[in-house]
Amino acid sequence: MTAPVSTTATATAIALGDDALVLSHRLGEWAGHAPVLEEEVALANIALDLLGQARILLSMAGDEDELAYLREERAFRNLQLAEQPNGDFAHTIARQLYFSTYQSLLYGQLTAEDGAFAPLAAKAVKEVAYHQDHAEQWTLRLGDGTAESHERMQRGIDALWRFTGEMFQPVEGLGESDGVNWEALHTSWTESVTSVIEKATLTVPSGPQEGAWAAGAGRQGLHTESFGRMLAEMQHLHRSHPGASW
């Protein structure tokens, strides 16, 4: 089926909802594999917050389960960053740092105006502040920990950098009337992330913030290869029992 992208608000809800849904799924893959019990709790906690946000957003656009389980890869609008495989703990933390900073700034802006997404943003911004703190604290610990953790953290930061440009391409339907200023978002994001990376004794990547694909690819339904496999796993049971309730 195709997503009911009938209005710009729906398009926005799907883009932001897919970010949260897909990243939540990736974090869910950590369950039972975290480096320390406290991180089992923390990563599951963040995954649950994001899943909660996804459910609210997707429900604004239609039926949450239809949207999550019955769309094909090309109909998903999440950032490519959100779908990147977990890698090692540093890779996951780098992804969290980039994304939670973005989400924190975006939702912070959305709370300023009385738009359709302000109520969701007001709830989510509190959760995201915690996610951002978690990612920043771990970036510092890994960056400024041992030689090995420093090297791994730098690798994570570098590897994911090319997926960050997409975050500053305007999301369809979100603009000044909602309080969103994409240029200001990019500037604040760069300042925030630079300061954490430098404080963690790491180097801010110098490469372009885009990959081989044009920035904004995920938002247009163009994803990276691991994403199809992720969806196959996520959707297979639901698709095996058409029309069933769970």
Partner: peptide
Amino acid sequence: WITRAPSLRRKAILMAKVQDEAGHGL
């Protein structure tokens, strides 16, 4: 089964449960 839960509601319940178990261990 977290990554294969058949609805978002069941997925949230299962994630919360596994998180609680880590907490009980602690």
